[in-house]
Amino acid sequence: MPRQIWLALLGLLLIILPFGLKGYTVYILSIAGANILAAVGLNLLMGYAGQVSIGQAAFLAIGGYTSALLMTKLGLSFWLAFPLAGMLTSLTGLILFIPALRLGTIYLAIATLGFGAAVQQLIPLPYWSAILGGHQGIRVPRPQIGSFVFDTDLELYYLTLVIVVVLLVLSWNVARSYIGRAFIALRDKPAAAEALGINPTRYKAYAFLVSAFLTGIAGALQAHLVGHISPGEFGLGKSIEIFAMVILGGIGSLPGSVLGAVFLTFLPHWLSEARLLYTFLYGAALVLVIIFMPYGVWGFFLRLYYRFPAMQKLFPKGA
């Protein structure tokens, strides 16, 4: 039962982790949790189903604003507003999917890019600034169960931990199922996949649906963690950041996306001492990681695993 033991140890570590850390670090860990969901969402779409998207920030924005507005304007509870935000984002994912049906990779990239630009331009328009708050954005209420409000960094961390773990398990289930296999089949050999009965339209739709759901939830989670949301957060830069998390972690690997998301969430904070050097080091880090780990951090780990027998003993195969 080595796999269960490792998972139990990891779980325990995540539970006691915040006690050794500063409040701000705990908060950044929670933000990393939201980024993990966004990265996993993009990886299922891009790494598994082979559909490149550089407009994921738009889904984050839709999820975040929806959850916030459902709570503040319609008075829904967090537990209703939060999943609904994911579902509504899923629906927009399906709309984006319509052009994707016919388009090759590069063309889909521009379509998603356009979608990202459109959402970021639409939100601050004066016509609905009474609701969306224009460029300043809006305040987002804290999550709440009954009368218990999650408002310290520690409380929010545990809430995030539960949400992220549950959604990771669900994503893992999909990735390891016949649906995940159909994604990969369509990505690698579309003709063979179709000849075996895989309906490309349906599975691409699934990929967009799942990806948009996870990203919408990530956006909602981030909005509730920060307590505020504004259109400036959702530019091209954010989409590219999520893209980079997936690539750095290793495309097609969910554990890789988790590592990539945590790494890129913390990197700016580690480099913040460097001030002006920061952007430069961030860029250099991206280049160097790809040069030395062409298949991402996870691919690098797997290579070590196969090269050193000691590691195989420590983590038996199939674990």
Binding site: M46, V52, I240, F243, A244, I247, L248, I251, L276, L277, Y278, T279, F280, Y282, G283, A284, A285, L286, V287, I290, I291, P294, Y295, G296
Partner: peptide, 26 residues
Amino acid sequence: PAKEAPVVSLLIVTLGVALMLNALAS
């Protein structure tokens, strides 16, 4: 030096270079 990496990863390399140039320019 990164030619072993898949093509999508090379996009990240071009972005990394972009960030470095941006920093230099500033």
